[in-house]
Simulated assay, not measured.
Amino acid sequence: MSVLLEMSMFPTDHGESKSKYVAEVINLIRASGYTYQLTPMATIIETKTMSEALNLAGKCYEVLEELDCNRVYATLKFDIRKGHENRMKSKIESIQNHIGKVSL
């Protein structure tokens, strides 16, 4: 099974710039060992199960909680598919098979 999680999570109570806080969340995601891709608007993570994805999202919140964030905004979107894996790479390759190399 493959669970693709697109997630954005940041505090709303700590000024205009959020990069310091987002960096700590990304550091946790990187340390988790899951495949991920940082984009300007969100981070995409691939796990094998829904419980892994939800657990990781909870840990990301805990990072912000430990940084004294009193209000956190988060969006989570899932694409869950049984019988497949490595979809972060294969979904892009599928598009490239139709139109050639794309910008990543």
Results as ranks from 00 to 15, higher is better:
residue 34 Y to P: 06
residue 9 M to I: 15
residue 101 K to Y: 01
residue 12 T to D: 12
residue 4 L to S: 08
residue 61 Y to T: 07
residue 56 L to K: 02
residue 95 I to C: 01
residue 27 N to D: 13
residue 98 H to I: 08
residue 50 M to F: 11
residue 76 L to P: 07
residue 39 T to F: 00
residue 100 G to T: 02
residue 77 K to E: 14
residue 48 K to A: 14
residue 52 E to W: 08
residue 76 L to A: 11
residue 67 L to V: 05
residue 101 K to L: 11
residue 53 A to H: 06
residue 76 L to V: 13
residue 85 E to V: 04
residue 74 A to D: 01
residue 93 E to T: 03
residue 65 E to M: 04
residue 52 E to K: 04
residue 20 K to Q: 09
residue 88 M to P: 11
residue 16 E to P: 05
residue 71 R to Q: 08
residue 3 V to R: 04
residue 3 V to H: 04
residue 32 S to Y: 07
residue 82 K to A: 15
residue 6 E to R: 15
residue 67 L to N: 04
residue 89 K to V: 15
residue 104 L to R: 11
residue 84 H to G: 06
residue 60 C to I: 01
residue 98 H to C: 10
residue 62 E to S: 11
residue 76 L to Y: 03
residue 104 L to C: 02
residue 79 D to E: 12
residue 31 A to F: 01
residue 19 S to Q: 00
residue 62 E to L: 13
residue 57 A to C: 07
residue 100 G to P: 02
residue 53 A to C: 07
residue 79 D to M: 13
residue 30 R to M: 00
residue 30 R to F: 01
residue 43 T to Y: 03
residue 74 A to I: 07
residue 22 V to N: 09
residue 99 I to M: 01
residue 55 N to Y: 03
residue 18 K to C: 07
residue 81 R to V: 11
residue 102 V to C: 10
residue 103 S to T: 10
residue 71 R to K: 14
residue 92 I to W: 05
residue 22 V to W: 04
residue 3 V to E: 06
residue 28 L to R: 09
residue 80 I to D: 05
residue 72 V to K: 12
residue 76 L to E: 11
residue 2 S to H: 06
residue 102 V to T: 08
residue 53 A to K: 03
residue 60 C to K: 05
residue 23 A to D: 12
residue 26 I to N: 04
residue 14 H to I: 15
residue 52 E to A: 13
residue 74 A to F: 11
residue 10 F to R: 07
residue 102 V to H: 04
residue 46 E to H: 10
residue 70 N to D: 14
residue 95 I to Q: 03
residue 44 I to H: 10
residue 36 Y to D: 03
residue 93 E to Y: 04
residue 10 F to S: 12
residue 59 K to R: 13
residue 75 T to N: 09
residue 77 K to F: 00
residue 29 I to H: 04
residue 25 V to R: 00
residue 23 A to I: 05
residue 4 L to Y: 04
residue 42 A to K: 15
residue 4 L to D: 11
residue 5 L to M: 15
residue 71 R to L: 08
residue 43 T to A: 08
residue 65 E to Y: 14
residue 24 E to D: 09
residue 92 I to L: 13
residue 13 D to P: 00
residue 73 Y to D: 07
residue 104 L to E: 06
residue 96 Q to H: 01
residue 99 I to F: 10
residue 78 F to I: 08
residue 64 L to S: 06
residue 19 S to Y: 08
residue 57 A to I: 05
residue 95 I to K: 04
residue 29 I to N: 06
residue 18 K to A: 08
residue 74 A to E: 08
residue 15 G to M: 06
residue 11 P to G: 12
residue 8 S to A: 15
residue 15 G to P: 09
residue 7 M to V: 15
residue 86 N to K: 12
residue 35 T to V: 10
residue 45 I to E: 05
residue 86 N to S: 13
residue 48 K to Q: 13
residue 89 K to G: 11
residue 53 A to W: 00
residue 31 A to R: 12
residue 25 V to F: 00
residue 37 Q to N: 02
residue 103 S to N: 00
residue 30 R to Q: 11
residue 40 P to C: 02
residue 63 V to N: 02
residue 16 E to V: 12
residue 93 E to K: 09
residue 21 Y to G: 02
residue 93 E to D: 09
residue 96 Q to P: 03
